[in-house]
Design a protein around this nucleic acid. Structure first.
Length: 360
RNA sequence: CCAGAGGUAGCUCAAUGGCAGAGCAGGGGUCUGUAAAACCCUUGGUUGAAGGUUCAAGUCCUUCCCUCUGGA
């Protein structure tokens, strides 16, 4: 297998094995060059059992193109969310023990090893080590311990990855493209908002040797602004030429800034989540002023009630080619699933088009 | 025609005779490795009409109007 990926790239999140509300065929193959699937959810754990039993891969089952890059996330961030929002989990040295809101009686254990096994069964091209993410507001001691445990877990994940994959990849990489010939392993740099700890995390992980490095944790500062300083620390602390992945980043502005700093792979829930909530990304001059690189159409707003123009007149997505703002507004107001789908198709498409603009 | 139940915000309904409220809808906003189909803020009132009792009436009394259910 030899794969090539144009950079910078945005991978939509397909957390539950599908991009939320968006059928794959609704996004052009030329645009959709990669996906992020998450290992933690019961749907995915159930899917891996199915895959294993029937010796098929997720790619075959979903009929994803061979040249598409599949990235699986380890589940670390979702465990943080389960612990923070639902108090349904805790971290031990062995791994993450958690319960799921749907079935709060059953305990699950996700170890760095198990996470790699699940990701291998899914058959992804880029696999992420299980890490201990934090929100950046924790005290120094907690942050340091989480960072050090992340390093120990990364080592364990790498051992499992090596056993399962059997060979290390040949990689060609620059800021324009990535070429690889077998699965890649991504370590996650932690350290919160502490510059020294970030640096230490990056150096520890780099010395263990990984194919790429993710920026882990929370990318925003206390004011909600993109934390440029800590992202710079992350990139600068890695050996030059390292492949860097901004996990969960971000707004189009943040992606542009991240790319300028040196990150080349991105993923984020924003396009799909915002679509469902009625915030549609449009090119500048076509909506309400929002960011440096984009405007927003808050489609629920009364002013679009009878607007018969497309969401973004410069967009070539199926939604913009076939539907009006007024219709989309009506569907979303009624929480009609077709509205979620049309809005999500637009935002995903718009994000991917944005990436092609960043490349040129 | 008789009997019973009812009429309060756009809708569905709360409120011992004591400041007329909630949910939904409507309007505005938030969202960053998705347990967010979520969450936050917010505009709405001659309590069917007219009289009466009372310090005080959505609430009690009288008449009328309308709705529903059952009966003739």
């Amino acid at each position: 297998m030899q794969k090539r990926l144009s950079l910078p790239v945005f991978f939509p999140d397909a957390t539950y094995a599908a991009i939320h509300s968006v059928p794959f065929h609704e996004v052009s193959n030329h645009l959709l060059t990669g996906l992020v699937v998450t290992t933690l959810h019961m749907e995915i754990i159930g899917m891996t059992e199915l895959l294993q039993k029937n010796s098929v891969t997720y790619r075959n089952m979903a009929k994803l193109p061979e040249n598409m890059t599949l990235l699986t996330d380890s589940g670390g961030f979702q465990i943080l969310s389960l612990i923070n929002k639902h108090k349904l989990g805790k971290i031990t040295e062995e791994g993450a023990v958690f319960k799921l809101p749907d079935a709060p009686k059953k305990k699950h254990l996700l170890t760095p090893e198990r996470s790699q096994e699940i990701q291998a069964t899914i058959g992804s091209d880029i696999r992420v080590v299980l890490d201990v993410p934090l929100m950046g507001t924790e005290d120094y001691k907690t942050t340091k311990e989480a960072m050090e445990r992340t390093t120990r877990w990364a080592k364990r994940a790498k051992d499992t990855f090596t056993r399962l994959v059997g060979k290390s990849a040949t990689v060609k990489y620059d800021s324009q493209q990535l070429e690889y010939d077998s699965p890649l392993l991504c370590a996650v740099v932690q350290g919160g908002n502490d510059i020294a700890l970030r640096k230490e995390s990056a150096q520890q992980l780099a010395s263990l040797g990984f194919d790429l490095f993710g920026f882990g944790g929370w990318p925003l500062d206390e004011n909600g602004n993109f934390n440029t300083k800590i992202i710079e620390t992350f990139v600068e602390s890695l050996p030059s030429g390292s492949i860097t992945y901004g996990m969960g980043i971000g707004t189009p502005d943040d992606i542009e800034t991240g790319y300028k700093i040196g990150m080349t792979i991105f993923d984020c829930v924003l396009p799909t989540r915002n679509a469902r909530h009625g915030s549609l990304f449009v090119t500048k001059g076509n909506g309400e002023t929002a960011g440096r690189t984009y405007d927003l159409v808050r489609i629920g707003s009364q002013k679009y009630e009878t607007d018969l123009t497309p969401v973004d007149k410069t967009c070539d997505c199926p939604t913009c080619k076939n539907y009006t703002r007024a219709y989309l507004r009506f569907l979303l107001k009624k929480k009609n699933p077709v509205g979620f789908t049309l809005a999500s198709i637009h935002n995903v498409w718009w994000y991917l088009r944005f990436m092609t603009r960043l490349r040129s």
